[in-house]
Design a protein around this nucleic acid. Structure first.
Lengths: 213, 213
DNA sequence: CGTACTTTTGAATCGCATCAAATCTGGTGG
DNA sequence: CCACCAGATTTGATGCGATTCAAAAGTACG
């Protein structure tokens, strides 16, 4: 199965997939999860590495204090690339909505990283990019107001303050750590204030002092 | 200078340093920054990779909208590992307090990654660990209440709900995206409520229903 | 046409940020 | 040893902005 019959919603996963050597890609198999289904459980042997194609999977750790904490909500990219380094999972993975993933055998993945030095370096770049992006996201989430987070997103993820959102605004609100109501209200304020132009999924930051008309 | 006369405050950087091949380590040079000094500017050629030893450096992008956004506040680990993949920096780096860093020549670093396959794999593990930790931090910052963030930290960074804080509580508050007042108050509430034991830098989550006596 | 989901607006509440200030701490120098 | 200082820790009062709950209107899709 070297060809995927999937209408990609998912830019990052698509880019990753192209970076994967075709020999390895051939070994992948598609996995469909219904909402609430479990992908793997803590303690289980790591047998596959998973790439998100559609939907959402959460990594959850259940502490003995009875509380459960979410370690990752994956909609994009790999679910738990750190599992490459360990022999068993350290948390549960559960889908929150119907999801589609690609599973790569972990052994083949590891040896591809070692033997195919080009892939190894590419993998390093992917991880480094991830790190940079996640760092920026953390800084964004530390900001107190909705407007600050929006501006930060446009400045750090966009080009010259322009972004075409790769997701619905509801999902974006969730990424920004806001309720959708708060996001919509902030967008309206910024539009009314004249420092943001919104056209569907396209958002543009207008430098202060220049209204859009 | 293969020996560093530094009293390490800095666990992560120390671990990283040990992972670096001694040949590369030898080429490092120490850099001291006063508060407010600039380490590099956007557009400058990437000549070094920097490891934080002490202090804090911020990566800042100045958008043409006049706003400036912080992309990373580094106190630990590398300042901008993504610079490994590009020829020039995409943001400014400025120290906020007096800081000490180690600078590695980027060329030597890149070739070490390619030629020393052990180092290459180690680098991948380090990055993967970073990714995991940053993902958890993002999930933590999405939580609305101070208590939830504290519990999340203890569950995800600690072992069995026990953590010995590797930093002051003020710095922790900043990592948690809280003011120090909010953090102190939440800690007090949790202590009083009996589900958290605090002893200096040691924090332990007490399973609900069992007070600490 | 109907269903599911997104987008939008409203009102009330709550928790955190903010500003202010006091206490405590460790370390320095006289 | 003590005075002193910088930084950390702690407590209080106030206001604001996001959350929450509720509901309506718009939109895509079968």
């Amino acid at each position: 199965m070297s060809k995927l019959d999937l209408p990609f919603q998912n830019g990052r996963s698509e880019a990753i997939l192209q970076a994967i050597p075709s020999g390895l890609r051939t070994l992948s198999r598609r996995i469909d999860l219904k909402a609430g289904e479990t992908l793997f459980r803590a303690g289980a042997r790591v047998q596959s590495i998973y790439l998100m194609l559609e939907g959402e999977v959460r990594l959850v750790r259940i502490g003995r204090s009875g509380v459960d904490v979410t370690l990752q909500r994956a909609r994009d990219g790999f679910v738990a690339e750190a599992s490459l380094d360990s022999s068993s999972y350290h948390c549960d993975a559960v889908s929150t909505i119907p999801s589609v993933l690609l599973a790569f055998p972990v052994g083949a993945f590891r040896s591809a990283l070692v033997q195919d030095s080009g892939f190894g370096r590419l993998w390093q770049s992917l991880l480094a990019r991830q790190v940079r992006q996640l760092r920026a996201q953390c800084e964004r989430l530390v900001l107190k107001s909705a407007e600050e987070r929006i501006v930060h997103y446009l400045e750090s993820e966009g080009v010259d303050g322009v972004v075409v959102l790769p997701m619905t605004k509801m999902a974006w609100a969730s990424d920004l750590g806001l309720t959708h109501e708060a996001l919509y209200r902030a967008l309206k304020r910024m539009r009314d204030g004249g420092f943001l132009a919104v056209d569907g999924q396209r958002l543009e930051l207008v430098p202060r002092g220049q209204s859009g008309a």
